[in-house]
């Protein structure tokens, strides 16, 4: 048995260090990914996944921390995947979610993992997807994924979730125009956090107005909370549960999961192809063809066709 498979088996048997190690492997998006996916596939599909997104500083981590005690009444284990952006200059990152989300008081029933977005182009979504499936397979029955709702890449991650919670603050409408539409479309449940600050009512009206334009049926609930005191958090948890019940009863959970599976396959193919293209472009063949192309001895179509044929050729 390969080392990876041994790790997976250990993780499936409940080893936290093994799960942690596998999550690192998933983050690197290396060739072991398919091996991991193979080994866990039979065990995946039991967890409910809640995505939490919203602008920076909306209080997402604090809110998740406040949701944990409620969630642990309904689920015996909660996994949290907290995604923060990588620096575009150094590829490094500072991941600060654990400062607000220690989970220590819940002992072994909470597993928190920080993840840097590491560039774009769906790589994040793919790593997050495998990470989520790993946690799922290892028996974490509720998984919460947190990302910044600032761009398409982050919102893409929300496709992994059964229920997406969008966290906003009073005054939201004035500060982030850019991705307002993306956020309102992404959410299944909305919460105006820091509702004790002035402007909560205006924001609520503003949000309800934006949502009414989308004509969604049933209209998504809009909750209010103050995560720092715990006010409104129990009600928010109920709203999240109600949405999950609705998904199950309406059969949407199954169709949504089929859609997710399709996205996963598509992403995996794209990812593999990208690797193959990289390898091809590094080959002697590509180098010599590029030289000819630069000298004008080959036109673009000829070059591309030849290389595509090479890509499709089965390797022995």
């Amino acid at each position: 048995m390969s080392a990876i498979c041994e790790q997976v088996d250990a993780a499936l048997a409940g080893s936290r260090p093994a799960l942690a190690r596998l999550l690192s492997i998933a983050e690197r998006s290396g060739p072991e990914l398919l091996e991991i996916e193979d080994r866990i596939s039979a065990r995946v599909g039991n967890a409910l996944v809640v995505g939490v997104t919203g602008p920076p500083g909306a209080g997402k981590s604090t809110l998740i921390n406040a949701l944990l005690p409620h969630a642990l009444k309904d689920f015996d284990g909660v996994g949290v995947l907290a995604v923060d952006p990588s620096s575009p200059f150094s590829d490094g990152a500072i991941l600060g979610d654990r400062v607000r989300m220690q989970g220590g008081e819940y002992g072994s029933s909470v597993f928190i993992r920080s993840m840097a977005s590491r560039g774009e182009l769906g790589g994040l979504a793919r790593a997050a997807s495998t990470a989520m499936r790993l946690m799922d397979a290892c028996g974490w029955s509720l998984i919460i994924i947190e990302t910044l709702g600032i761009g398409q890449v982050e919102l893409d991650v929300m496709n992994l979730a059964d229920t997406t919670l969008v966290v906003l603050n009073p005054g939201w409408g004035d500060t982030i125009q850019a991705n307002k539409a993306g956020l309102t479309e992404a959410g299944d449940v909305f919460v105006i956090n820091k509702a004790d600050k002035p402007g909560a009512d205006v924001t609520r009206t503003d949000l309800l107005e934006s949502l009414s334009l989308l004509n969604r049926e049933p209209p998504p609930p809009v909750c209010q909370s103050t995560a720092s005191t715990g006010d409104g958090v129990a009600e928010l948890w109920t709203a999240l549960r109600d949405h999950q019940d609705y998904l199950e009863q309406s059969g949407q959970l199954d169709s949504a999961r089929a859609h997710k599976q399709q996205l996963l396959v598509r992403r995996t193919i794209t990812h593999q192809l990208t690797h193959e293209v990289e390898r091809l472009m590094d080959s002697d063949l590509a180098t010599s063809m590029l030289d000819q192309s630069t000298l004008g001895q080959l036109d673009l179509r000829q070059t591309v066709d030849r290389l595509l044929r090479e890509l499709a050729r089965p390797r022995g």
Binding site: G57, G59, G96, V99, R100, A227, S228, T229, D231
Partner: peptide, 11 residues
């Protein structure tokens, strides 16, 4: 009564 201040971490 007052809850906890939400520390703005610099990242």
């Amino acid at each position: 009564v007052f809850g906890d201040w939400n520390t703005p971490i610099q990242t």
